[in-house]
Write a protein that binds this DNA or RNA. Structure first.
Lengths: 152, 152
DNA sequence: AAAATTAAAGTCAAACAAAGTCAAAAAGGA
DNA sequence: TCCTTTTTGACTTTGTTTGACTTTAATTTT
């Protein structure tokens, strides 16, 4: 069996045990799994993405950690479909439509939808080259949606 | 848990107990926390800055002390000050400190702070080159805070 | 009153402790 | 074969902890 799959299994079992949230040190986990640390990064980057229903946070330095949180079990399927349909790029207009739709359906509060809209506005992304903004928007919105529906 | 976080918690509890103002001796606090004195300085320098809405006064020599006062400003004012204090670039740590501070002061709900944190995480900005992320963070957080301000 | 002593806090850089990045090499699969 | 995924490791960046040394203020001694 591939190392990647072992690591995935292990993290899944952590998530199960801690219902929905797993926190660990990258180096330590690499040690227990018998792989190099960057393999852990690879597994997370390829298997615990927003598309697959996970939110990842981390910190470097002393006392650093990686935390993976799974989306709530009963989270609206609408949301997951949405995250998956966003893909690599999301233009402003579509983003606006998506957000007002979520607010209308009461998946998000109006205030939350406004905050999200602000986060992906052209103004917020003015530091980025115009032709890279749509891909940033996609990444940001996906993470926002996952955060809104993460367990605990 | 990091020593830094323990110290932050302790100082926050002092602030709470004393109604917005905490005074202590650096060496004494270091003693009770079980760390070196300069660690206290580090915590103050990194977590209780003016941008965070704290005033720090101190005196050396015999009878010396450190006094931290929570600057009392209403939520909108605090938000505007923050927006203005954020320049062209904002690193993750500072961003995190800002957000947890706003939640601590109840300017934002914990949920909102989490959403904002997700919006400026490395994960969300993975489409951007690492060395451009801090300037994006600055732009995004400023817009988020302004949106929170106007939706108040 | 001046000098010496003592009691603080301040500074700063080095050591340490993580995670992140990236590209090359290896392994699989169509 | 050629393309994609996985594995590896060298190197970078970020954040924390520690300690030696400096500065400042109050107190004591001469």
């Amino acid at each position: 069996m591939r190392m990647t799959d072992n690591v995935v299994q292990y993290i899944l079992s952590l998530l199960e045990a801690e219902h929905g949230s797993a926190e660990f040190r990258r180096n330590e986990l690499a040690e227990t799994m018998g792989c190099v640390p960057s393999q852990i990064s690879y597994v997370i980057a390829s298997r615990f993405t927003p598309e697959q229903g996970y939110l990842v946070e981390s910190r470097r330095g002393g006392g650093g950690y990686i935390r993976i949180t799974r989306i709530k079990r009963d989270a609206p399927t609408l949301l997951m479909h949405l995250v998956n349909s966003i893909g690599e790029s999301l233009d402003r207009t579509t983003a606006g439509v998506v957000l007002s739709n979520l607010a209308e359906r009461k998946v998000l509060s109006v205030r939350e939808a406004k905050l999200m809209a602000a986060a992906i506005s052209d103004q917020a992304l003015s530091a980025a080259a115009p032709d890279t903004r749509d891909s940033l928007r996609a990444g940001i919105l996906k993470n926002l949606l996952m955060a809104a529906y993460s367990a605990t």
